[in-house]
Amino acid sequence: MSKYYGIFKMQFKGELQYRAKALSGIATQFFWGLMYIYLYTAFMSSSSVDGFTLSQMASYIWLGQSFFALRYMGMPKHASDEIVNGNVCYKFIRPINIYNQWYFEYLGEKLAATLLRFFPIIVISVLLPTNYGLSMAVSGSAFILFLISLFIGGMLCVSISMFSVYLTFVTQSPKGSAAVISTIAGLLGGSLIPIPLMPSSIQYALNFLPFRYISDLPFRIYIGNIGINDALIQIGISILWLAITILLGQLLIRKSLKKTVIQGG
């Protein structure tokens, strides 16, 4: 386990190097959070839509902005670089599972970026007036379940991102691969528009895909849009998705690595 801790620490330190990037990230997240709240308030016009109130919507948006780095589906950069420049072959020399290494590198990068950014946004948004600011979690138990599901969500986000690594093996185009995966996940996972604002038939259908368990589930547990009992069941489902995506990812990446090595990179 210590080697994964090492990988994680390296990523964290790396992230801290880019101070200006973090600060500007915080400022822009905050700004756009505000814009989104105005936008959806205008759409919702009445004070609630199927039990989703303005104040819940505002909290949903602020959580999304605070944990942007955690739920944003990018490209694990180390992995894609190594694939494109062919260094991936050297990975076989190291006594470490390649999928795991990339997984933890990317998780580390995400956690570091999140830890650096979420706090200022949370603090400022809590201070905003009702219907515009972040409210407290509905209950202590909801808050605990929120933390658990958020962490699982972050891991699920990484395990789905790993499919763009697989696509990079196939297409040799990291940019295009990441864009396609992150767009699908963004639309179907509620980061393009909050899922509670979608037509109800679509909301129902999205329950059967993994994407909404990344951030939609934890946020809705926090604001009380999903009750404790439902939350427990859905956390169970998200763990199931996590296991499925990791297994599938391991399989696909092992397969394409073998192919790469045989072809000589």
Binding site: F43, M44, S45, V49, T171, Q172, S173, K175, G176, S177, A179, V180, T183, I184, G186, L187, L192, I193, L197, M198, P199, I202
Partner: peptide, 28 residues
């Protein structure tokens, strides 16, 4: 090949974004 892929992914993103706007207007 790479240019084709990038073009494809960009059109894909556009359509997803249009879809998101459409979903909002479907509801409201």
């Amino acid at each position: 090949f790479n240019m084709f892929l990038i073009s494809f992914s960009q059109v894909f993103i556009c359509i997803a974004e249009i879809l998101a706007v459409w979903l909002l207007f479907q509801r409201f």
